[in-house]
Each structure stands twice: as structure tokens, then as C-alpha cells.
């Protein structure tokens, strides 16, 4: 399995750490109801098919990546940085 890191190019899966669904990006507000936090932390669509999840290029550029891929075929459609240069305000 190989991921095409937007900063480093195609790299072996060994360089990456997998975290979980991209839903981890949608952190509820501190005062959100308990149900929202339960959903955020635990409940998952867990699709058999296309999904988006989070990977960390731990042994590379240390970017967190949002990967669009298929959980049935393992086909990888897109790999995007979680922190876009615009949002990061000057991050390389």
C-alpha cells in the first residue's frame, strides 16, 4: 500500500500512522450536547466502500493527511493535507 503524500510524493505505507475516520476533524464545540461528543469520539459510518480517513506522515513530513479511499478495494482516490497552506497561515 502506498500513499501519495502531497508534500513528499508516493511513499510506502510503513511511513504513515493511521488514526481513524475524517470525522475526527469535526470537533464539537466545548458546550455541545453529550450526544455530539459521543458521536464524535465513538460512532462511525464505517462504510464498506468510499471513505475518508486520517493518516499522519510520521516518518516523513509530519503532515496529517485526509485520504479518500475505498475500504473494500483499498483503492486510494486522493490524499490531501489536513492543514491547507491558506488555513495554516504560513505553514510550509
Amino acid at each position: 500500500m502506498r500513499l501519495n503524500c502531497p508534500h513528499c510524493g508516493p511513499r510506502d505505507r510503513r511511513e504513515f500512522y493511521y488514526y481513524g475516520a475524517a470525522a475526527y476533524l469535526d470537533r464539537p464545540s466545548p458546550d455541545a450536547p453529550a450526544q455530539a461528543w459521543d458521536d464524535y469520539l465513538h460512532n462511525r459510518d464505517n462504510p464498506a466502500g468510499m471513505t475518508q480517513d486520517l493518516w499522519y506522515h510520521e516518518q516523513g513530513c509530519t503532515a496529517w493527511l485526509k485520504v479518500t479511499r475505498n475500504t473494500v478495494t483499498h483503492e486510494i482516490i486522493a490524499v490531501d493535507a489536513v492543514a491547507t497552506p491558506k488555513a495554516s497561515g504560513g505553514m510550509a
Binding site: 475526527y24 470537533r27 499522519y56 510520521e58 509530519t62 496529517w64 493535507a81 495554516s88 497561515g89 505553514m91
Partner: peptide, 20 residues
């Protein structure tokens, strides 16, 4: 040590990438 580094990177890049 590694766990915390990864955690900080995540929190930063996911939630406050625009912070200095």
C-alpha cells in the same frame, strides 16, 4: 514522547492550523 508529538501535530493541523 512520540505519542505526544503526533497528538500535538494533530491538534495543531486539524483544529488551529492558522495559529502562529
Amino acid at each position: 514522547a512520540g505519542l505526544v508529538m503526533r497528538h500535538l501535530d494533530f491538534v495543531h493541523q486539524a483544529f488551529c492550523a492558522d495559529w502562529d
